[in-house]
Design a protein around this nucleic acid. Sequence first.
DNA 1: AAATTCTCCTGAAGGC
DNA 2: TGCCTTCAGGAGAATT
Length: 270
Amino acid sequence: MPELPEVETTRRGIAPHLVGRSVTGVVVRDHRLRWPVPPGLARHLVGQPLQAVERRAKYLLLRFPAGTVLLHLGMSGSLRIVRAATPADAHDHVDLVFGAQALRLRDPRRFGSIHWVTGDPARHPLLARLGPEPLGDGFDAVCLRAAAHRRRVAAKTLLMDSQVVVGVGNIYANEALFRAGIRPTRRSDRLTRADCARLVEAVRAVLTAAIAVGGTTLRDFVREDGSPGYFVSDLRVYGRGGETCAVCGAVLKATRLGQRATVYCPRCQR
DNA sequence: AAATTCTCCTGAAGGC
DNA sequence: TGCCTTCAGGAGAATT
């Protein structure tokens, strides 16, 4: 499932192929994503040179002189660079064609989205209320502790709240809590300064390590060339309920928290 | 207002 | 073999 490392991997993968090139066509095979693909997308984009590929939270921003394509991969989305003539798969919903190559969006579950934004994208409703980037300066123990003490939710719910910090989905929330030695169900207002400091470092470490190996491929995620990410073998708790903890040997406990699969070590995590 | 639940979707996996 | 149910989850919307 694309979380921040997978989106960042995608950004780094596609940018070198496309930046500086102009859109020559737009193919929308199925406009039914989470929100309908904007009908005027081709009219806005054809002839426009791509200036940069940026990322904010789990959104990719394709910057053009006239505006920005705001793209989210949902939970089964992936972007590939293909030859423009490559036959489309059943779930290849949208192509942005750049001459001989195309940026192709595949998204079997159609939870992804595409918006066309003019003006400052940071003001767009989907981006305006987002919290700090986890790998930037804005995310630190002080701000996490402040957010934690404003509310009384589970520590895992706190980490996955995009107003607190962006980009941390279910997989990496589980992993970061394990590395920080904090039980997912711990009430946020009972996190100490030291807990928050460890949690910040754990989030940064796990995301950085995942980016370094191209993210986590469970089912649908692939890189721009179709290859998988390799972080799945570095997951210490996610998907490992019933196995033994790599640190202490206790049996990892699988449960559900807020409708999400949750795994933790009952001995290491308090 | 904050917290929780619901919702969209398809494919894989398990039960019988 | 095949049909049915359950599960996976990002995150905005709806509800409590």
